[in-house]
Amino acid sequence: MDNTITVTQVIPIEMYVWLSAALFAIGVTGVLVRRNAIVVLMCIELMLNAVNLLLAAFSTYLSDASGQIMVFFIMVVAAAEASVGLALLVMIYRNTKSVDISFLNKLKW
């Protein structure tokens, strides 16, 4: 068991930081590029996952389980957010017959 090479020995922590930063930036770009509200919600999930990955990586590299507990709570919040967000989208679709976010600008300024 002690002879197996763990990821902490071969991959420096920076690689996880760059990977998470890339995933987060892709998520932000998706929110800005897409007009379909469901895809925008999916990009928010992607950003949450980038943060989760970084928390789990630091938790392992620092040998501290609190980071993994935090990932668990972020998953809880993400699940609640997705269910309420999708319910809101279904409601919006029922009223406007579209999920295009550029029509939902009444609260913009």
């Binding site: 469901i38 990586a57 938790s59 392992t60 990932v71 668990f72 269910s83 999708l86």
Partner: peptide, 26 residues
């Protein structure tokens, strides 16, 4: 990645919650 990081519980929960619940909802 979670499996690689020795976070087995997180890997399973991630698959169940995201692939199994949230994306099916989407």
């Amino acid at each position: 990645q979670y499996v690689l990081l020795n976070a087995q519980f997180l890997a399973i929960v991630h698959v169940i919650v995201y692939a199994g619940a949230i994306l099916v909802l989407f």
